[in-house]
């Protein structure tokens, strides 16, 4: 298992290198000079040059790139051009928030989708097509609600209307209750965003396993229906569900950028937008690297989870 993970991580290095080069180059191709952002429009040419030198932007690009690589090799992501804070600590603070939101909403999404999908599959297998149809119609509606619109709707209804969840204010772990209330809406929005895909894949996978011979065996042995559904049929349907969860988690990370902005939560999405707007090269580079790592790790995690639910799957 450890050897497997080690091998998979080594295999990521080429992809990461490509990303590092691309991001470095692309960032510097976008118009806009970080020194101008920091020094202001009215800064004189000499002061600007001094500032660029201080920020390490004066050296030739290949030189800058080599310096960047050298510091990466020391696991040093540099400092923000704007705040001089180490990029690692900026990311560190932001990522706990984003990870909390992303993981919680994925878990919530699964808790909603898997039972929904199983019930839909069961209705279908029993020929109760109306129950199945109604569930899938609800799912289709959810699928077509844009997350920003849903966010605004929930804000209006639950926050302004009922005063349930604060939508602004401090985001701090010192008061877990307040933190939970503060993160609730973004988590709900992102969870709902995952429901459609996860419910569909659960439903079709379970419909398939319900038709298998071993389900017939379970039935012939007098197994209660809920046990058949959740112990016999669902685990056999797990592989596509896990795959979809991985994919959906990737999409959700993209979604956090929007949702964090709407609910003003200083996660990595918000940081990324700020850093891009301010042409804060080290921060953008660091964040993109983190996103890339997360995306690449999802695949490894997915594979490892496979082996936990299906004894036939071996890590190769």
């Amino acid at each position: 298992m450890l050897r497997y993970a080690g091998r998979r991580i080594t295999a990521m290095i080429p992809a990461l290198l490509v990303i590092i080069v691309l991001v470095f180059a692309l960032l510097r191709m976008i118009p806009g000079d970080p020194a101008v952002f920091i020094g202001g429009e009215n800064i004189g040419p000499e002061a600007l040059q001094a500032l660029r030198e201080r920020l390490g932007l004066a050296a030739p690009l290949p030189q800058q790139f080599l310096d960047y690589l050298a510091s990466l090799a020391r696991f040093d992501l540099g400092r923000s051009l704007h705040t001089q804070l180490p990029v690692t600590s900026i990311i560190g603070n932001a990522i706990t928030l984003t990870a909390t939101i992303a993981i919680t909403s994925t878990v919530l999404g699964l808790l909603i989708s898997v039972p929904l999908g199983v019930v839909a599959a069961y209705s279908k297998s029993k020929g109760r097509n109306r129950g199945d149809g109604a569930l899938m119609a609800v799912v289709m509606v959810l699928d077509n609600v844009p997350s920003f619109w849903l966010s605004l709707l929930l804000m209006l209804g639950l926050s302004y209307g009922l005063g349930l969840f604060p939508i602004s204010g401090a985001v701090s772990w010192s008061d877990p209750g307040a933190m939970a209330a503060r993160l609730a809406l973004p988590v709900i929005v992102l969870a709902i965003g995952q429901v459609a895909a996860l419910t569909r894949v659960t439903r079709s996978a379970v419909v398939e396993t319900l038709g298998r011979d071993y389900v017939r065996t379970a039935r012939a042995m007098g197994t209660p229906e809920p046990t058949i559904l959740f112990r016999h049929a669902l685990p056999n349907a797990a592989l596509p569900i896990i795959t979809m969860t991985g994919l959906s988690f990737g999409r959700l990370l993209a979604g956090t950028v929007i949702v964090e902005a709407i609910f003003s939560i200083p996660g990595i999405g918000t940081q990324l937008i700020q850093a891009i707007t301010g042409r804060d090269y080290p921060v953008v580079q660091g964040l993109i690297l983190v996103y890339a790592l997360i995306f690449l790790t999802i695949n490894v995690v997915t594979d490892v989870v496979y082996t936990r639910v299906d004894p036939r799957v071996r890590l190769a």
Binding site: R212, D213, Y214, R216, T217, A218, R231, H232, P235, N236, A238, V309, D310, P311, R312
Partner: peptide, 10 residues
């Protein structure tokens, strides 16, 4: 068919 009649994950 004993090949398919037992549950593979149990």
């Amino acid at each position: 068919d004993p090949g398919t009649s037992l549950n593979p994950v149990i």
